[in-house]
Design a protein around this nucleic acid. Structure first.
Lengths: 206, 206
DNA sequence: CTATTAAACGGACTCGAGTCCGTTTAATAG
DNA sequence: CTATTAAACGGACTCGAGTCCGTTTAATAG
């Protein structure tokens, strides 16, 4: 017997709730909006809200998910253009775009992290789609750079994780807000600490 | 007029509460212990509990604080012994000991972080005593290494932060539990990515 | 179009976090 | 030792998170 398709009212409510939450979060800040309020404003019962979203963190995940899709598309487009360019330039492009996105999404990412931690869902950051995607992308670019003999790394996987740690939302925001570095300051320092020292010296080529 | 000294009952309650919380946390796990329960078990009212500790995160901070004092003492003892040794060896010692401590305290550190985030106290991790202390220690050791001409770094401050990011509780636990690296695996990879490439080649000295 | 079904709904309910404020008690003044 | 004071106490209270379950409704069968 065929599986019933999702009910029309359910689909509409899902959209309605997400939009309402987004509006309220923007207007009053995530912390100052209760789940109650979201349900009421959307005109649904609390049960309906919780049926779709475990908690505020879950709502934020969905918000991030939407934005992340754009990012992925944009990035593939860029990378297609650079198909035959230097993989180092590609890597730099990826990093720059990602930093851009982190800057934009950090607000949500922090909330997600807090709820994950509080509910004992541990290390979900590292399993989130954005992390996994970035990991794969950076990992394969580094591999290509290595294949071309431009770099030599002891542990590719560890290196990739450290790359991402240096642009993780927490760390990034700290550099940005407390240290007062600009986006470019950070990228510059990142390159000079984690990228340039490993690029094989072929200055003689010049 | 002299400031009144802290009341005796207050002092005793403070100790009692902290010990009770510690015991309950160990027995049932931080997540499964309510503030109510802590107060009840300690035999004080809820108000008394909250008078000292804002929330569970705050309790964990105090727990960490105690352990961290030991760590600091131990470390200074070690460093005094190595006073005239190579600052690189000193740095490695510091890193090794810190990793040890993070391994032990990660449970609490995660809870602290979650509450900080949830209550909108942002980036407190970077202002916590452990972070600040480690920052100072690593920073000054790197400076000394630089002074001796053994290393050259673009931005000492940024480098120090990245060092600490690579052994931040979240990241460390991920490497440890999900990647399956041992403590030594991690230190090895850390050195080979973040330390060795910057040490000036004076192999000719050999 | 009607009956059947199971998903979806929504509000009453429980439970813990955190606050408030009238009461108690340790410290100090005399 | 007694009176005064202000810190400390503790439990009633509020408020939001999340669950439960009787009721509604969209989808499917006939």
């Amino acid at each position: 017997m065929a599986v019933r398709k999702e009910r029309q009212d359910a689909i509409e409510n899902r959209k309605l709730i997400l939009e309402t939450a987004h509006v309220l979060f923007q207007k009053h800040g995530v912390d100052n909006v209760s789940m109650q309020e979201i349900a009421q404003t959307a005109g649904v019962g609390k049960g309906t809200l919780y049926r779709r979203y475990k908690d505020k963190g879950d709502l934020c995940s969905d918000l991030v998910q939407k934005r992340f899709l754009h990012f992925k598309e944009q990035l593939s487009a860029y990378l297609d253009d650079m198909e035959n360019g230097s993989p180092i330039a590609q890597l730099q492009k990826v990093l720059r775009e990602y930093v851009n996105m982190v800057e934009e999404l950090s607000k949500w990412l922090k909330v997600i992290q807090a709820y994950d931690c509080l509910k004992g869902r541990s290390a979900t950051y590292f399993h989130s789609e954005p992390y996994v995607f970035m990991y794969k992308t950076i990992h394969s670019l580094l591999k290509e750079i290595e294949r071309q003999g431009l770099i030599e790394l002891t542990d590719l996987s560890y290196t990739t994780d450290v790359f991402l740690a240096a642009i993780s939302p927490d760390f990034y925001l700290y550099q940005r807000q407390e240290k007062g570095y600009s986006q470019d300051d950070i990228l510059e320092r990142f390159y000079s600490l984690l990228l340039e020292p490993f690029i094989k010296l072929d200055q003689n080529k010049k």
